[in-house]
């Protein structure tokens, strides 16, 4: 069996889960017991077990977002024991496995908390603010067709690799959830850096950073005070360096550009 430790015993756990009917009602913590949880289960599979039990008993299952369960789609977003995506560094909730917990543990599970991420139901939140920030300028304005041959734009490997690192953001929102100000700077900076690093992105670099930052503010995200918990809790390791790049881009745009915002 994949990774099974023959000595690992099934666990019984107490879950304290945030339940909230919809955006307009108040929520609260409800306690549940789950039994015979295999250490090889993923955290979400443990929740599947809870939900199947609830449904069979005629109670409403806990709503939560998830999809690929491979750590790449960015859907899953649970605040576990006070930490975004739980205790294991560099890991999304779906890739967190129950072998990281012990028999008899009490686990608190909450949704992301941020004004810009209203709760849809239970543990599911609305992160469409991220989409609107990208719509404000997180792209290179090229239409389909008429582009030059891909190898006409040589890019030093180091630059391409750094752009790639920034581009691996999965937009889960852990950075916002972990920040005491609920700032979205790490998310925004990842896109700004990726496109500022690449020559293709230079043409629009000034308007891009101004527009994206303006939208970020409009969505109600807090300001960045350089604490760094965003990067510490980011499941894909987006670096704080990106925020420095964003600040530089923003400053130089404000100092030299047509000052769009």
């Amino acid at each position: 069996m994949a990774g099974s430790n023959p000595n690992a015993k099934p666990m019984n756990l107490t879950l304290k889960v945030w339940r909230q009917k919809n955006r307009n009602t108040q929520g609260g913590i409800v306690d549940y017991q789950v039994k015979d949880i295999s250490p090889d289960m993923s955290f979400l599979e443990m929740l599947d077990v809870l939900n199947e039990d609830l449904l069979r008993k005629g109670e409403e299952p806990v709503a939560f977002d998830h999809d690929c369960r491979e750590g790449i789609c960015g859907s899953c977003n649970l605040f576990i024991n006070g930490r975004a995506h739980g205790p294991e560094p560099g890991t999304t909730t779906c890739q967190l496995h129950m072998r990281k917990f012990n028999d008899g543990d009490t686990i608190t599970i909450e949704p992301w908390r941020a004004n810009a991420f209203p709760v849809n139901k239970d543990l599911s939140v609305d992160r469409s603010a991220f989409d609107r920030i990208i719509q404000a300028g997180g792209y290179i304005s090229v239409n389909t067709g008429g582009t030059p041959d891909a190898n006409e734009i040589p890019i030093p490997k180091e630059i391409a690799d750094r752009a790639f690192e920034a581009a691996t953001c999965i937009a889960c929102g852990a950075c916002v959830a972990s920040c005491k100000n609920a700032s979205a700077m790490l998310f925004v900076s990842a896109k700004v850096s990726q496109l500022a690093l690449l020559p293709q992105g230079h043409v629009e670099r000034k308007s891009r950073v101004e527009n994206m930052v303006a939208q970020m503010d409009k969505e109600g995200f807090g300001a960045c005070t350089n604490i760094g918990s965003c990067a510490a809790e980011c499941p894909v390791g987006i670096s704080l360096e990106n925020i420095a790049i964003l600040n530089r881009e923003f400053l130089s745009a404000k100092a030299t550009s047509n000052n769009l915002a």
Binding site: Y139, A150, A160, Q200, G201
Partner: peptide
Amino acid sequence: IDQCVAQGVPFAR
């Protein structure tokens, strides 16, 4: 490939 590179897709180099 041309299209994606123009969009800023960071392919391996």
